[in-house]
Amino acid sequence: MGFKLLSKLLVYLTASIMAIASPLAFSVDSSGEYPTVSEIPVGEVRLYQIADGVWSHIATQSFDGAVYPSNGLIVRDGDELLLIDTAWGAKNTAALLAEIEKQIGLPVTRAVSTHFHDDRVGGVDVLRAAGVATYASPSTRRLAEVEGNEIPTHSLEGLSSSGDAVRFGPVELFYPGAAHSTDNLIVYVPSASVLYGGCAIYELSRTSAGNVADADLAEWPTSIERIQQHYPEAQFVIPGHGLPGGLDLLKHTTNVVKAHTNRSVVE
């Protein structure tokens, strides 16, 4: 069995187990497998329904001669939608809004960016022009300005110390501490036991640490421990890039980060 097929099978099995364990909360999309990078042309966006009122959005972007996937989250909030992270750029984010209108038909009224990198804030200006209120932590807003990236308009308070959590509509926002970046936030959907790890969490097929220019490698494993301790009931975990899975993604990420750190020390 090929690795790609095995990865998709694991996603399907995880979703099936969740649907059985929580039949009222989960209505997993039966329309197909989780979209992969090879299936999404740059400039297009796919939506994948995880649970009743919960979707991931998947886009792709060219970077350094390669094409990478990027995940975000959409959560229903009454007759409105909360968006977590842009679709990595203005063109993708405009396509995301169009796809949401086509498939869901509810307005996106608020959006949260989970850290300051372009795959999370690139497209904020498109959201703002569409009347979406954009939010991020003060740290993310400051770092985005320093980096020359787009800056969300509103500040999220109460997320300055490791372990801080605040309720934001249908989700809980959690600051686990520094990891992929010093400002990275985690998003949890309690009604569906869905954990969105953003770039602080890796997919299972990833074996290298990737972009760690703004990471705190020493603190990252401790931050992941905080996530595990705060959300032990999480059933569906979405990484910032690639295929979702279960809580095993947290341990896998820790292993990859520690291996990278150990290699760096040896070198």
Rank of each mutant, 00 (worst) to 15 (best):
E150T: 12
E225V: 09
A178K: 09
A51E: 09
Q228C: 02
I50S: 13
A94V: 06
P35T: 03
H57F: 03
I104Y: 15
I238C: 12
T261H: 14
L96D: 01
T36N: 04
V121S: 03
L73Y: 00
R226Q: 02
I40L: 08
A87F: 00
V108H: 01
P221F: 13
D52F: 02
G2S: 13
C199K: 01
S30D: 02
I40Y: 03
P190T: 11
A111M: 07
D118E: 06
V212H: 03
A19T: 07
A144I: 15
I151R: 07
E33C: 07
R142N: 15
P35I: 04
H252Q: 06
H252S: 08
T222C: 08
L13K: 09
F168Q: 10
I227M: 15
R142V: 11
S113E: 10
L5F: 02
A218M: 02
S160W: 10
P23R: 09
T253Y: 02
S208W: 04
A87E: 00
D183S: 01
Y48S: 06
P152G: 12
A234T: 03
V171P: 01
S162D: 05
D64G: 05
I17Q: 02
K8C: 08
Y48T: 09
V212L: 11
L47H: 02
L96H: 02
A259I: 07
Y48D: 08
A215K: 14
G32H: 04
V266R: 12
L47N: 02
R46N: 07
E44H: 15
Y34N: 05
F168N: 03
I58T: 06
L185Q: 04
L156F: 14
P244S: 12
I186C: 12
D214R: 11
L83P: 00
H241K: 01
S22P: 14
E267I: 05
S139M: 06
D164F: 04
P221N: 05
L249Y: 04
E145M: 13
P107Y: 03
L97M: 07
S113L: 14
A129K: 03
A215D: 08
F116M: 14
L81Y: 04
V121D: 01
D29K: 09
V28C: 03
H117V: 00
F63T: 02
E150K: 15
H154R: 04
A95F: 02
V112F: 12
S70P: 01
T86Y: 02
Y12S: 13
G148V: 05
I58P: 01
Q229W: 11
F26N: 05
L83E: 12
V266Y: 15
I50Y: 03
G53L: 09
N255C: 03
P107C: 05
A234R: 03
P35N: 14
F236S: 11
E80K: 13
A144M: 15
M1N: 14
G158M: 06
I74S: 11
G2C: 14
E157W: 13
D119I: 01
S162Y: 05
L159R: 01
G122I: 02
